[in-house]
């Protein structure tokens, strides 16, 4: 243990250890090649082809990529996805952190567990039930939400059938379903912050929102960055939350990029074009997360 090996990995004295090491990583390696590297390379190759799953693929060069520029449905889906991502991330991370702070205060243990479980519960519910539930909540004429809105004098909202409102409905559902997870991670982050800082802040006269913005948020910033990154990636890949609620409608009003990829690939059988859009999505995610990491140097703080 610990002795520096100067000879190569496969030098006689190291060979045994190297082989053992490779055997240990082999299962993970096989998984990576089969389910990550393989499909990625395949996507790259297919994006340069015209391929309908039934006849042999033919090479078309960059044609699939050129087609993107003149496809208004793609840009509609792109816009929907970006809008969804911005608000879903704000909602999930913002509300998740606020809930975490509220539930991390001193209160009876039982109450604390009940609240935490209540907010986390939606993350555990199968999407089909979620869909049934929210379809019902969002009904225009007999829905619960409109019933209560009506009571305070707000006319019936077409939650699912109005192109302007449907995307909002989708975001509400997504936040309802996923905020509990962000909350849980944020609670874990909060609990690793020493209470001494809060005592010091109280002695300094800080209270409420000031403590939240000037003490909690900076000390929680690594957790917040993690949540933003994970939620952004998740939001750009949004699929089933929308499928179960609006299935992309009305029209293309709530269609996301992944839904459009699915439609192109498995309904219209434009495998080449679907692969090209997949690469676009990958590029967008890589660029955005890189930007987030670069910007985060200015506001995150690691102790």
């Amino acid at each position: 243990m610990g002795d520096v090996k100067t000879a190569g990995w496969f030098a006689p004295q190291n060979r045994k250890e190297t082989i053992a090491g490779l055997l240990f990583v082999l299962p993970a390696l096989i998984g990576f090649v089969t389910f990550v590297a393989g499909p990625m390379i395949a996507t790259l190759v297919i994006s340069l082809m015209k391929y309908d799953l039934f006849s042999a693929p033919t090479f078309v060069g960059l044609k699939n990529f050129q087609r993107m520029f003149v496809d208004p449905r793609l840009w509609k889906a792109f816009g929907n996805t970006a809008t969804f991502a911005v608000f879903a991330v704000l909602g999930n991370v913002g509300l998740g952190v606020v809930l975490a702070v509220l539930l991390n205060r001193r209160m009876p243990k039982a109450l604390q567990y009940i609240y935490r479980a209540a907010y986390f519960f939606p993350s555990l519910v199968g999407l089909i039930f979620v869909a049934v539930l929210w379809q019902f909540m969002f009904q225009r004429d007999i829905g619960i939400i409109n019933y209560y809105l009506g009571k305070i004098g707000i006319g019936p909202v077409s939650w699912l059938s109005s192109p302007q409102v449907a995307l909002i409905s989708v975001i509400i559902l997504d936040v309802w379903k996923n905020v509990g997870f962000a909350m849980l991670i944020a609670i874990a982050g909060l609990q690793s912050i020493s209470t001494d800082y809060y005592d010091a802040a109280r002695v300094d006269g800080a209270r409420g929102w000031r403590t939240f913005w000037q003490i909690t948020v900076p000390l929680l910033s690594p957790t917040i960055l993690f949540l933003i990154t994970m939620n952004t990636i998740g939001a750009f890949k949004v699929f089933e939350s929308i499928v179960v609620l609006t299935n992309g409608g009305p029209g293309d009003a709530t269609r996301s990029l992944v839904m459009y990829i699915y439609e192109q690939g498995f309904k219209s059988f434009n495998m080449g074009y679907a692969s090209a859009i997949s690469l676009l999505l990958l590029g967008v995610i890589v660029i955005i997360t890189t930007i987030q990491f670069v910007l985060s140097k200015r506001w995150t703080f690691y102790e």
Partner: peptide
């Protein structure tokens, strides 16, 4: 108050 851990705001 001066705390045992100092509790200086690390950021």
């Amino acid at each position: 108050m001066v705390f045992q851990s100092y509790a200086l705001y690390p950021h």
